[in-house]
Design a protein around this nucleic acid. Sequence first.
RNA 1: AAAGGCAAUCGGUUUGUCGUUCUGCAGAAAUGCGGAAAGGAAAGUCCGGGCAACACAGAGCACCAUACCAUUUGAAAGAAUGGGCAGUAAUUGUUAAAGGUUAUUGACAGAUAGGGUCACAGAAAAUAACUACCAUUUGUCAAUGCAAGUUGGCAUUUGGAAAAGGUGAAAAUGUGAGGUAAGAGCUCACGGUUUGUAUUAGUAAUAAUACAGAGGGAUAAACCUUAUGGGUUGUAAAACCAAAUAUACCGGGGCUUAGGGUUGCUCGCCCAAGUUAGCUUAGCAAUAAGUGUAUGCCUCGGAGGGUAGGUUGCAUUAGAUAAAUGACAAACAUUUCGCACUUGUGUGAAACACAGAACCCGGCUUAUAGAUUGCCUUUUUAU
Length: 130
Amino acid sequence: MGESLSYTFTKSERLTNVKLIASVFSSTENLKAFPILFIHFSLDLQGPTNYQVLFSVSKKKFKRAVDRNRIKRLMRESFRLQKAEFIQALGERKLIGAFIYTNKVIADYTSIYQAFTKVILQLKNSNPSE
RNA sequence: AAAGGCAAUCGGUUUGUCGUUCUGCAGAAAUGCGGAAAGGAAAGUCCGGGCAACACAGAGCACCAUACCAUUUGAAAGAAUGGGCAGUAAUUGUUAAAGGUUAUUGACAGAUAGGGUCACAGAAAAUAACUACCAUUUGUCAAUGCAAGUUGGCAUUUGGAAAAGGUGAAAAUGUGAGGUAAGAGCUCACGGUUUGUAUUAGUAAUAAUACAGAGGGAUAAACCUUAUGGGUUGUAAAACCAAAUAUACCGGGGCUUAGGGUUGCUCGCCCAAGUUAGCUUAGCAAUAAGUGUAUGCCUCGGAGGGUAGGUUGCAUUAGAUAAAUGACAAACAUUUCGCACUUGUGUGAAACACAGAACCCGGCUUAUAGAUUGCCUUUUUAU
């Protein structure tokens, strides 16, 4: 992972396979940092990266598509800018995961960014190899 | 000039940093340099069409949609303009009406095919009898009379009668005359409503007039009836490619002389069949040996449908697929408020809508801060 890639978020890093998504949501391993819930599932990925993630907002909590898009964009931006820390926390592990927004009102950018920082910290501490 | 209504158009701009999807060029690759990237409603998924699959002799039933007329536009759905009819408001007009003008509303076929419903009030809301009216039965009381009886009051029986009262949104066509026990379109005259026919005017809806009928409350954005039209399902449709696993089927090779059951195997036992294809050799024969077919098993290959998955569908300036079109920062523009003064500038603060493509096109409906333009109405000011 070179320094020049550190802020990208390409298709190979996104979770798109329907069956893998189903296995993620059936997983019980999760990390909480309000308003973010991170569900993940260890899996031996074959792609160029050792992780795949997605961002989700409940349709029940936000009925309008504009609001859901806004939150997902903010979450994606927060992840993208802190991706280097995420990879570092991940270490040698391989996993697929979903970031779920659990609040009922739209948070601002800085609070979502800080929530992602907490999630990554928890992921780092949960690494069994350290 | 202000406020309101209707219609149409627009509904932010620029810069920086870091990114996303598709794509062109260069490159072995990493990557680099370019290009394109959300609306007026992308929404609701309510109509019509394209497109796709399935269905399809003919007829009927059911279901759904549409419903005054003409013209223009359109593939259709629909839209626009004008007209007719009905309602509402304003204005004009008049003693009061009628009528006229303007604006506006109308899913604007049928209530004499049929059933249903009609709150409250009221006797009664559709084969109407509470009070009052008329006739009548019975009882009783009074008056009168010599008596029979007659007249009247009260109660009561049976009928007549929609003319009077009150209720109601609505009470069975209005006025007058005749008629009658009392009454009644029961009859007549003049009106009103409505149906049919004819004539005239009009492209038509329709209107006017004449003649002949009718009285039948309202309600069809309830059921229903009439007329006309309509196959069903939707791009998660549908088409194509196609691992792994199992395998109907076809071919090559190998193995086995062999039925079924009894614990997977062996032996044994039981059941069924009845000398176990055919050919060769040996034997009188039972039989033995060999060859080896069908069938079966194993294995290799082919082939088929088809799952996971993928591609197309899906882009002639968006084309994603847990779904890109962005995040952050700054400036400007716009609106509102505060302050300052040179009264249109400066300065500070706040606000900046509805809303995010998912096969495409045409409509309808709903949401929408603010800006601009046009038309109309009202008020005020000036001339």
